[in-house]
Design a protein around this nucleic acid. Sequence first.
DNA 1: AAGGTGACAGTTT
DNA 2: TAAACTGCCACCT
Length: 110
Amino acid sequence: MQSDFFRDVYEVVRLIPEGRVSSYGAIARYLGSAKSARTVGYAMNASHGLLPPVPAHRVVNRIGLLSGKHHFGEPNQMQNLLESEGIEIEIDQIKNFEKHFWDPNQELNL
DNA sequence: AAGGTGACAGTTT
DNA sequence: TAAACTGCCACCT
């Protein structure tokens, strides 16, 4: 059973459209806790195997770096999934990150 | 109950 | 300009 905070994080992450990515900080801000970006990542760590699935591969750090790729089953899993959605990646970093960036505050709350 | 950890972010050197 | 440090919140042992 997850805390409300975790559940909220998962809910937002599931709202990320395909071919789009978001950042931990953006999600944290959307939840009202701008400083809890690290906790968002922690929530992602626990998002494995829960239902419905959480597209954790669409969540990266603020510079578009696949910081959490190592936490997937296979390190290349995250990159593979993102490329599958049309996102180009170079050396664990998303190309045109700003173009693919999806900010919940901007898309949902606006 | 207290201390340590971390898939981050912002600030300072 | 790049690298390093500190702050931060929520979770875990």
